[in-house]
Design a protein around this nucleic acid. Structure first.
Lengths: 247, 247
DNA sequence: CGACTAAATTATTGATCACATATTGAGATC
DNA sequence: GATCTCAATATGTGATCAATAATTTAGTCG
């Protein structure tokens, strides 16, 4: 502090003053969203309003709104002090989460399979190819990203804008824990269940597609539980917000 | 602007100036939450930040956060201008909403039934009694309120903090439309399905409880669809925020 | 040397402000 | 008389600020 809070800059708009007024919110939102999905933020990590704002080069205002919405989506939880942090999942909660996942995503898969087009199959195949490449490179973040893309592309085809946000909320909740599950040897690095899903889609068999999806979800759930529910493994989440990604 | 916006009151803290700094947010949140559940806000209604804040005697700030969270919960939607309004449901969306309701709330009911206590049955019976009284008086808002209380008390007993927020999101979505369904003659004003649910709980039969719940949900869904999906009926939502309720 | 206390730092919260934009209304023109 | 234009109004967004509350740190006492 020394002399002053150095916040004596109201009259001087500086250079980046009136920088693009094109919804800073969306930028921040996408950043946080992907960060949670891809493992940039880990369970237990506390999100500081000011620090996030500073790291993103904006005021606390838009960050505040984004974090608030993520709390509403149960992706983040508030501390008693009003701060928000990435929740640490208990094994019970993981089991619960994946039980509901099976219900909702099973439903979405069945619906999508019933109105499946050739284009969708082509797209899913392409995504799965990218996923395999990421697996090859042992690129965790890309694995998570492509895996998410695969699932959400499929679910989107269900045409349900009721299911989508709910599923999204679930993914935001277990997303941060997913990253850690890739760090244990028991995690199977493959995309075999995805292949089965695509095959069921090709065969125009919604029931089989649903079953394959349930299998995929259950397998992932088991892997997450084996990690220890995000309790045993404690990563030094030094890598903060610096590691950005494509806009 | 003539002389001034009459907002020349920064130096005069008046009487209620430093009124309890105990989270204005929670007050506003509860107000909006109940308002949506109980029919104080109707489909199509636009929420103005400043007006809501003025009506609630606070600054736009906390209202902003609450509305933002409700958008995240799909209870409200944003217009292109950034305003938020209560969504108008299409028949397809209602059907979708109630399809997912059956899944999630059926699950919650089954779980709750498996760990059902005598206290729960007592509580549900009491709530249902209040519901019947509200029905007797043709008190729509109280009907909605007691009905919601009945369902959520039961679901809460499932012990799943994964299911609860999702179910809550669904209720916030069809809540405003529910009010209107009570205005058409085809709406059955009774609580018979609730009685069946309680009986199944007493009989310690989770399967029967689930079936009774599914029946209740399906019946409500049909009633909502018969209304016309919130399109045909257009209420003059004159009653605004004035009609408050207990804190 | 450890634990408790108190001060200082840092945090979010609610309020106000400035700006850009969307909406509305009135007026003039065709 | 209808429509187009432009001004006035209203609204959300991002930033700043004051105040409360929590956390941390340093200091002292046991």
């Amino acid at each position: 502090m020394a002399n002053a809070k150095t916040n004596k800059t109201p009259p001087a708009p500086e250079e980046k003053a009136t920088r693009g007024r094109a919804h800073v919110y969306n930028l921040v939102a996408r950043y946080m969203y992907r960060g949670l999905m891809v493992g940039a933020f880990l369970p237990g990590q506390v999100m500081s309003l000011r620090k996030l704002a500073a790291a993103l080069g904006t005021s606390p205002m838009p960050v505040r709104e984004v974090l608030s919405r993520l709390v509403a989506a149960n992706a983040l939880e508030e501390t008693k002090g009003g701060s928000v942090r990435v929740p640490r999942l208990t094994p019970e909660k993981i089991a619960d989460l994946f039980d509901v996942r099976e219900q909702l995503e099973g439903n979405a898969t069945e619906r999508a399979a019933k109105s499946c087009t050739k284009d969708l199959i082509t797209e899913l195949t392409a995504i799965n190819k990218s996923l395999l490449q990421a697996i090859e490179k042992r690129d965790i973040m890309n694995c998570l990203s492509q895996n998410q893309k695969f699932h959400f592309t499929l679910y989107e085809a269900s045409g349900s804008d009721v299911l989508m946000p709910l599923i999204e909320s679930l993914w935001l909740q277990f997303g941060p824990t997913m990253y850690m599950s890739f760090l244990v040897p028991s995690m199977p690095w493959d995309a075999s269940s995805h292949v089965k899903i695509i095959e069921a889609l090709k065969a125009e068999n919604p029931g089989a597609a649903k079953r394959a999806m349930l299998h995929d979800i259950r397998r992932t759930g088991q892997a997450l539980l084996n990690v220890g529910g995000g309790q045993s493994i404690e990563l030094p989440f030094t890598r903060g917000l610096e590691l950005l990604f494509d806009t």
